[in-house]
Design a protein around this nucleic acid. Sequence first.
DNA 1: TCTAATATTCGATGACAATCGAACAATAGA
DNA 2: TCTATTGTTCGATTGTCATCGAATATTAGA
Lengths: 107, 107
Amino acid sequence: MKYLHHPDREEIQLSSVLYALSDPVRLFIISEIQRSGERSCGEIDVPVVKSTLSHHSRTLREAGVVHVRVHGTQRLLSLRTEDLEYRFPGLLGSILEAYERTGEKIQ
Amino acid sequence: MKYLHHPDREEIQLSSVLYALSDPVRLFIISEIQRSGERSCGEIDVPVVKSTLSHHSRTLREAGVVHVRVHGTQRLLSLRTEDLEYRFPGLLGSILEAYERTGEKIQ
DNA sequence: TCTAATATTCGATGACAATCGAACAATAGA
DNA sequence: TCTATTGTTCGATTGTCATCGAATATTAGA
């Protein structure tokens, strides 16, 4: 089984997190994950092909936004809520709230 | 005198704001502006040439993050604090606080 | 062991962005 | 009107990214 790298709490960079969340598809993904708590790639309904979704999943993981857990043939994504709150208090919450409020669409 | 376009409050997009603030140089710029309230391009000490700084200024303006006021030969930048707070409550504050806390450097 | 399900990796493509230097524009002040 | 100051625009370069389809890897289950 492959090792998936996740940055350490202290290594998470603000600019990287903001970049990861500046893409409408990725904003949608984290919004979905927040609602369900944990979700596999296949359960996330985005208008891109599998390989593209995998790319977005990797971008979010490497920025420190999500944690990816291997479960059988699935990868379960969850938000790194606590780590982000510890490092950047209030940031994730205000982004998710802003996303819900303004209802920004993909594309 | 040239007309500088600023997006309307309601037109400001979350993903565009996050993208604009995902660059270390631009994070530095808004951090400086916050401290001084208003600042001309020439007063912002960043390690890029004038034309590049002009590009960053434009990116921030078009995303709705800063307001640019023409004053003689200078362009005075200020944060659109109220508009951003109205549209995305708490967002700008948490980003600025995160930037100060973690002391992310340019480069 | 074979097959289906799930996701990643790879290669290609097209778009966009950060950067620079040079040229240009606009304005203040002498 | 001339000059210095302050920024913008333009063209070129270099690099990165979002996207796709095809091929590959991994695991569960029959």
